[in-house]
Amino acid sequence: MSPASRRLTLLLLVFLMPMSISYAADESVIVKGWLQKMIKAEHSASYRGTIVYRHQNEMVVMNIVRAKSDHGMMEYLSAQNGAPGEVIRNPHYVQSLIPDSEIPLQSDNPQIVNKTEKSLHDRIDEIGYYYQLTLAEVSRIAGRASQKLVITPLDQYRYGYRMWIDQQSGVLLKSEHLAVNGEVLEQMIYSNIEVFGETIPLDVRLMLNELSDRTMPDKAFLKQQPSNSHDTQNWAVKFIPTGFELASYLRSTNPQQLPFEHIVFSDGLAAVSIFIEKQEENGAFNGVSQRGAMNAYFAENDGFQVVVVGEVPLATLELIGKSVHHTVVNNH
């Protein structure tokens, strides 16, 4: 290459470099804008449709109805294949009817119900530090134009994501969790969806209002009460990947249950839950569990059962679980 050609090449690089940096920055801003639209839809969009969930050789089909009722935003899911089951969700509780059981389980703590959505909303500007955000092509999902986003982790502690967001409503129509090697661990996709406008169909309003008025037997409530006991064990976590911050901390000393603590960390997209419960002698379990992108790590720690659950690699959960330790023991 002649000196003149080299100078021309350098000049081109000088002029093109700021343009490339500007484009990358603009792309990240655009992706965050789509994520904001998705978050807004999560809190305000009303619709009904059919969701297909796949992981490995398993497929679950669920009908979903979601709309505002007299008690706020209600969501109802019902299994259409396999074991029967249903989930009812509103801003105040999540109620799940367990197959082969007449006793539903309920959590009535809004911190648990909405922690993931709030975390992403609050930390939307930070996720670019831990993930590469890429704007991909527009395609059709369930007959609707959808913007595809590719979210790639910048370390080995997280999974990647592909998301398809409805251009009109912002509803997440398809999502995939990706392993470090690019393998699709699980997929969620709408096979059909009807997005409502300002007017909610009468049959939907009546159904959701009826569901919100359901009463629960006392024994079905799982209430987490503030602790005022000095005998309750406090716990902390020595290792947590960069970017994961404390999202919620709950402690229960319900006299009808063994004391337990629940700690949640999130990086805005992924969440890790740590459950710690006092066990009877020889009652703890050690091992791991994997189901799609959801992993769990179980360990016994000084008479307590420690369970770490999250949609992150199993190795991440093991590192976190092994770092859980006592902080304060006060028997006064």
Rank of each mutant, 00 (worst) to 15 (best):
E281A: 13
I276G: 11
H262D: 04
Q290L: 10
Q224C: 08
T116R: 15
L246A: 12
M38P: 06
P201N: 07
S191V: 06
I39E: 05
Y93I: 01
M163Q: 13
P201D: 08
M74E: 06
E277P: 00
S191A: 02
E261T: 14
N254F: 00
M163F: 15
L105F: 03
V184I: 14
A83C: 01
A24F: 05
V60W: 02
I276K: 05
A179Q: 05
N192T: 09
E300S: 11
L314F: 04
V324K: 02
L11R: 11
L211E: 03
L222Q: 09
G160C: 10
S44K: 12
Y297T: 04
H55Q: 11
V184G: 11
L8W: 03
Q257K: 06
D100K: 14
V138G: 11
P3S: 12
H177M: 15
S69H: 02
V150L: 14
A41C: 10
I127F: 06
H332W: 00
K118I: 12
G303K: 02
P99M: 04
I124E: 07
I39A: 13
R123I: 07
D231E: 05
M207W: 02
K148Q: 15
V288H: 05
G33P: 03
S96T: 11
P255A: 01
S107F: 01
I30L: 13
D70E: 10
D218W: 00
L13S: 15
N282P: 00
I51S: 06
S101K: 09
T242K: 15
Q167W: 00
N181C: 10
I263Q: 04
H230P: 05
L16Y: 06
R144K: 13
P313H: 08
D166V: 02
E245T: 14
E186T: 12
V264H: 08
I151A: 10
N114L: 05
M1V: 14
M62A: 13
A299I: 07
S44R: 11
K278Q: 10
I64A: 13
S44L: 05
F239S: 15
Y161D: 12
V307S: 15
W34Q: 12
E75W: 01
A45H: 09
F260D: 06
G197R: 09
V307D: 02
M163N: 11
E277I: 02
N330F: 00
E277C: 04
A145L: 07
P110L: 04
P153N: 11
N209L: 01
A271L: 04
V306C: 10
V29F: 07
E210S: 13
G292V: 01
R7W: 00
A142Y: 05
P313T: 09
S323A: 07
L250V: 03
S289I: 01
P110N: 03
M38F: 10
W34Y: 15
V150A: 14
Q56C: 03
V138F: 08
G321S: 05
E183F: 02
L16R: 10
M216H: 06
A236T: 11
P217H: 03
R140K: 15
Q256C: 00
Q80W: 02
Y76K: 09
E194D: 13
E280D: 09
L258Q: 12
L149R: 12
E27K: 10
G82P: 05
M163A: 15
K238F: 00
I30W: 03
D155N: 15
S252A: 01
A67T: 08
A271M: 04
E186M: 09
D213N: 11
M62Q: 13
P217Q: 04
K32F: 10
G182I: 05
V87Q: 12
L185N: 09
L149A: 14
V113A: 09
